[in-house]
Design a protein around this nucleic acid. Structure first.
Length: 502
DNA sequence: ATGTGC
């Protein structure tokens, strides 16, 4: 048997790209890393594997706790982690969702070809930078009065479209039609709402960006046709989350768990994995508040989409919908938990179980935590929007600003291998602090423009350094693993034309 | 990720 060991954590190779940390001690279930040998070596360099192992202690965790090929260490649970936990007898963990609730990415297609944009990159990047608020702190596309906040938290994209910031077809092209039906705005604190108020329609900082890209490769012609993608076509990618509102909400509930459920917390190997027991008031309140933050993040991406459409309309002197065909391809969430039904091993009492304790397999409602992971449901699944049901849901995976991105479709192995999930990006190789020691923002910006004709504009040079292409893993390798495992299949590849960020 | 710390 092929094995690897990192800091005392041993992994057994189950098959190509599948590595298992066997169950031992207080682990409820084994854990699996979905990675090639080279990606596993990178994942093994930080605390990801220990964090993944810690997460197997969470009550109700179904087999196996997972790390996607782009995984790296995060708060408590790896970014790139998937944990499916019994919604009746288990728990829900804010740290396994992430601070930036519904950080996610959407792709907008256009009728433009690369030739239409070439030579006008500076004009376009300046206009977008002007139109889309970015960077830390406040300032959004709209003011965010009480009605706006309430509409966004309660009704998501539906509210934004009603207010004139989108078109009817945008709704069906978001996970959950852009509205979590179980959102409960009353469980979001006043402080969180105050932080979100003047951030409605803003990119934020860090790895968030808006990028104009050209399609360089099409791998599955029939799927690309369904998605409206063709070689040399221009697309717009928008990556951002729930800003201060989601961050505050995560923090609020972590503090409440510490106060109200210290007994469970004391049993966990890491306090950052703090979780509310399923069925508790706090679990229901967090789930409802998280749903409202999810809606807010969708509105955020919708307002930025509106600004991008308006800007393209002005720059190319055309109607963004009628002439430029700027329809939403799809919007995917990276940091969420959601009640989904999956088949798992169960014990005599019907609880998720493994090994000798598993006497049967049955469908169970699970809190599927995807933290830095993307839902990747295959063709035929009822939760895939009708327009894409015959080919599988679009999965949009951004790479670094020097390497381009991929569009995949949910693969037919995803339900049995990864609770219907795949990777969400290239995955960091080093911390932000280390990145700033290795790179200088201005130099990175010059190299991208001179070497690859990629035009980057940011509020802060430090952000460009933190996001330099060299701080990321090889996106091609991440996608190869997803494609070869059959959890997310390659459809098209894109390359950056211009990029704005915080 | 984040009014870039509790």
């Amino acid at each position: 048997m092929t094995t690897r060991e990192f800091d005392g954590i041993r992994l057994e190779k189950v098959r190509e790209h599948v590595w298992e940390i066997p169950r031992e001690g207080d682990m409820n279930v084994p854990a699996r890393v979905l990675a090639s040998e080279s990606l596993l070596e990178e994942i093994g360099e930080d605390d990801s594997l220990q964090q993944l192992k810690n997460a197997t202690h969470l009550p109700g965790m179904a087999e196996p706790a997972l790390c996607m090929p782009d995984g790296h260490q995060g708060y408590g649970f790896p970014v790139g982690g998937v944990g499916a936990i019994d919604a009746r007898t288990g728990c829900i963990s804010p740290g396994a969702v992430g601070y930036d609730i519904n950080c996610g990415v959407r792709m907008v297609r256009t009728n433009l070809a690369y030739d239409d944009v070439r030579g006008r990159e500076s004009e376009l990047v300046d206009a977008l930078f002007e139109a889309v608020p970015s960077g830390l702190g406040g300032g959004g596309v709209i003011g965010g009065d009480a009605d706006a906040i309430e509409g966004a938290l309660e009704r998501g994209v539906e509210w934004a479209v009603e207010e004139g910031y989108g078109i009817e077809s945008d709704l069906a092209r978001c996970e959950d039609e852009g509205r979590r039906p179980d959102a409960r705005p009353e469980y979001v604190s006043q402080k969180a709402m105050d932080r979100g108020r003047n951030q409605m329609g803003s990119l934020g900082s860090g790895n968030h960006f808006l990028e104009v890209q050209r399609v360089t490769d099409v791998f599955r012609e029939e799927v690309a046709d369904e998605y409206g993608l063709r070689e040399d076509g221009i697309v717009v990618l928008i990556h951002c989350g729930s800003r201060g509102l989601g961050h505050q909400t995560c923090n609020d509930y972590l503090r409440r768990i510490e106060k109200e459920h210290g007994d469970l917390l004391a049993e966990l190997p890491d306090k950052e994995l703090a979780a509310a027991p399923a069925g508790s008031e706090l679990a229901d309140e967090y789930y409802g508040a998280m749903g409202a933050c999810i809606n807010f993040a969708w509105v955020n991406r919708q307002l930025i989409t509106h600004q991008a459409r308006e800007t393209f309309g002005e720059v190319f002197d055309a109607d963004p919908i009628e002439d430029l065909g700027m329809e939403l391809l799809y919007d995917v969430a990276h940091n969420i938990a959601k009640k989904e039904t999956h088949e798992v091993g169960v014990d005599a009492d019907g609880r998720p179980a493994v090994g000798d304790e598993a006497v049967d397999r049955a469908e169970r409602e699970l809190y599927v935590h995807r933290k830095g992971a993307t839902r990747a449901f295959p063709a035929g699944n009822a939760d895939v929007p009708e327009v894409y049901r015959s080919v599988g849901q679009p999965v949009i995976i951004p790479g670094s600003m020097g390497a381009g991105s991929y569009v995949l479709r949910g693969g037919d192995q995803s339900m049995s291998v990864s609770f219907g999930s795949t990777a969400h990006g290239a995955g960091r190789l080093m911390s932000r602090t280390q990145a700033k020691q290795e790179f200088w923002g201005g130099d990175v910006q010059d190299d991208l423009e001179d070497g690859q004709q990629i035009y980057v504009k940011a509020q802060s040079g430090a952000t460009i350094a933190e996001e330099a292409p060299g701080v990321y893993k090889d996106i091609d390798e991440v996608i190869r693993v997803s494609d070869e495992l059959g959890i997310g299949d390659k459809v098209a590849r894109t390359f950056p034309v211009c990029n704005i960020k915080g």
